[in-house]
Write a protein that binds this DNA or RNA. Structure first.
Lengths: 186, 186
DNA sequence: ACCCCATACGTTATCTACTAACATGTTAGA
DNA sequence: TCTAACATGTTAGTAGATAACGTATGGGGT
């Protein structure tokens, strides 16, 4: 079983190399102007290896572990709370945890995504998937229209906050913006 | 100026021919399995003409006049109403107008879009654009975070309703689902 | 130490969406 | 009738994505 460890770590490393090379190139040359072949060359692999790790070019940017995390946080909160408050608190927890390390990276990536149509498309799809997960967590089973609406509204609030936060250096902190966004919802 | 009329009508006709041919092929063979060349051939044009009318393959399905219409309806309603009620009433008006003619077509197209990842991506982007238009209409100028959240939440409610309506033949009417969705929001 | 084989990676070919350059034909107006 | 504008076609090319097939590296059983 030691073998698997070694292989997994090697794979994780090349995956990271590809992703780093890609984002660096995107920030310098722009997303559209950067070809997969260039990324692969910069990471020292062939274009096939790129596609084995990221089935599509945009996934190298949009693949992200946070969205599923939100659903877990929602499920972890007491079911007695009203749905929107539950979601709000869950998000607050999540973003507080983030605050300490990766906020700058997240912001840079958010900007890249928001400035690139091809990447934005994926993002909205992802938001929708997360909304369904959140709705399921809120309902504690298959959600009905009511829970889907609430989850969707909550995601919309979060998205509005993130968009403002990413677009303006002078704006408030992300946590505060999310708080304000949920306030507007009630 | 008579000339322009004639040319415009001819252009509108070929545009329609292309779109009809495309949607028919999509429904029969599926979106991915249908090539632009096939669509162009079925419509009796070259693939370049296709792209002149629809800059991207997916636009032949997702290009749609309803989303801008919503913003107009919102702006037309009295500004004294609370924002969410205003949006709700505006949507009610719009879908009542629709009811009389194209509902079946809209439903078929909605299903095609919801079943095709490549089309879904565009749809969410479009929803976002509409939300911005609605937010502007609600604010009567450049919207702040509050109006953006409300507009986004409203669009989320509408989307949830449309998704359920498109997915289930036995479900309630679209107007009623939208009404229920907005009820869940308050 | 030997071979075996799984597994990651590369090479090559091909498809398709999409774009650009240039050619052609048709029609409105002088 | 000539010409300028405009819609369309032809051709060639780029880039994302997939499939078939070959190769090498390293682990485990004998």
């Amino acid at each position: 079983m030691l073998v698997n460890d070694w292989r997994e770590r090697k794979k994780a490393a090349t995956r990271q190399r590809i992703q780093d090379a890609a984002i660096e190139l995107f920030l310098v040359k722009g997303y559209e102007a950067t070809t997969v072949e260039e990324i692969a060359a910069a990471a020292g692999v062939s274009h096939m290896t790129f596609f084995r790790y990221f089935p599509a070019k945009d996934l190298v940017v949009t693949a992200d572990p946070y969205d599923p995390m939100i659903a877990e946080l929602v499920a972890a909160r007491p079911a007695e709370e009203p749905p929107l408050l539950r979601l709000r608190r869950a998000l607050a927890e999540g973003f507080t945890y983030l605050e300490e390390r990766e906020l700058a990276t997240v912001r840079a990536r958010a900007r890249l995504i928001l400035d690139t149509p091809a990447l934005r498309a994926q993002l909205w799809q992802q938001e929708r998937d997360t909304a369904e997960l959140v709705a399921t967590a809120l309902a504690g089973g298959v959600p009905d229209l009511r829970f889907r609406v609430l989850a969707g509204a909550g995601m919309a609030a979060m998205t509005a906050a993130v968009v403002q936060w990413a677009g303006d250096d002078e704006t408030a902190s992300l946590a505060e913006l999310i708080d304000r966004a949920f306030q507007a919802l009630t």
